[in-house]
């Protein structure tokens, strides 16, 4: 048995599934993450002198079904041209037959990390941007099905990106649904009874594998769960405002019909909360309404009150 130096052992561990890209335009630098389907590497595009992200199917998943899923994810990303979706540069096959795709390298914080460092209103504005992206996807017939804080990145300049569309479903909803031009037989590749998603962020119908019930409201449930997680994470989030609790409770209703019917309506509720007006999900008690109105119009109310006090004092003093 030949002695194998430590350096060789380390090298073999590294290259056992190291992607061998065709040509010498791209140099793979290091692995930066691993998801359910693929490993993501930081790579350098020598021709354009920029860094990119390379997602490669994990070796142990190199079956036609998983290859099809990764290819499908790349196609979905490529079709969803939106600032909240990572742009894909190319898709291809490695020498060992594995599917890969190149995309923009995203630098930033995960939403849950971001939430711990910002105010409630900043966190809510980030969630509104997520809603914009998800709403855009829904309008193009795509349901994400795996929305969660770790799949949302906040860039250095405040850009909000929704990642990991690997288990997205092409639902064909909406008048302006765009066909994704997927190869025949791959339009829906999730068998009934299959459970895909993340516990805590998937609704009951998804958790039991009821594929036929999965639609836009599946993502709305996840957005409600994200709202709850993010509000709890912001500094002082241990006693959240009741209207916000009502919003996420409606979004996370067990029955799909009881949830917000569209992401746009969920966004509108969040916007109402940020603007300090009543939200539909919450019937406000009188005293709370007074407190909210006072909070929103504090300065003019104080000015009027001060004016009235001065006026009263003036009248009283003149009467003496």
């Amino acid at each position: 048995m030949t002695w194998m130096p430590d350096a060789t052992v380390a090298h073999l561990r590294r290259v056992a599934d190291w992607p061998d890209l065709p040509g010498d335009r791209l140099e793979v630098v290091e692995p930066i993450g691993q998801g359910g389907m693929g490993t993501v590497y930081r790579a350098r595009d020598r021709a354009l002198d920029r860094e990119v992200a390379l997602k490669v199917l994990r070796v142990e998943l190199s079956s036609p079904e998983w290859a099809s899923r990764l290819e499908r994810e790349a196609r979905i990303l490529a079709r969803l041209e939106h600032p909240g979706v990572v742009p894909v540069h190319e898709v291809g096959t490695l020498a060992d037959g594995r599917i890969y795709y190149l995309m923009k390298l995203v630098r930033g914080q995960r939403l849950d990390e971001f939430a711990r460092t910002v105010s409630l209103s900043e966190a809510l504005r980030a969630i509104l941007r997520v809603c914009d992206t998800v709403g855009f996807a829904h309008a193009h017939g795509v349901v994400h099905r795996d929305l969660k804080p770790s799949n949302i990145m906040i860039g250095a300049f405040g850009e909000v990106l929704v990642l990991d569309w690997g288990i997205a479903r092409v639902a064909g909803v909406g008048e302006d649904a765009v066909a994704l031009d997927l190869p025949q037989g791959r339009r829906e590749d999730t068998a009934p009874g299959t459970v895909l998603g993340t516990p805590g962020f998937m609704p009951p119908e998804q958790a039991v594998g009821a594929i036929h019930l999965v639609d836009e409201r599946t993502d709305i449930f996840a957005l409600g769960a994200i709202l709850k997680a993010v509000v709890s994470a912001v500094p002082g989030g241990d006693s959240p405002p009741r209207p916000l609790v009502a919003i996420w409770e409606r979004a996370m209703a067990a029955q799909p019909a009881a949830r917000y019917p569209t992401v746009r309506e969920l966004s509108a509720e969040l916007t109402r909360f940020l603007d300090g007006v009543p939200v539909q999900a919450y019937r406000e008690p009188f005293l709370e309404r007074i407190a909210r109105v006072y909070g929103k119009y504090q300065t003019p109310i104080l000015l009027v009150f001060a004016y009235l006090v001065m006026r009263l004092l003036f009248l009283v003093l003149r009467g003496l």
Binding site: Q34, G35, G36, M37, E60, L61, D146, D164, G166, I167, T190, A191, G193, T194, V195, L196, G197, T198, P199, G209
Partner: peptide
């Protein structure tokens, strides 16, 4: 991390 479908073996038998 995304869950795998039921019955899918991650590593070969």
């Amino acid at each position: 991390m995304t869950s795998l479908p039921d019955g899918t073996r991650v590593f070969p038998t």
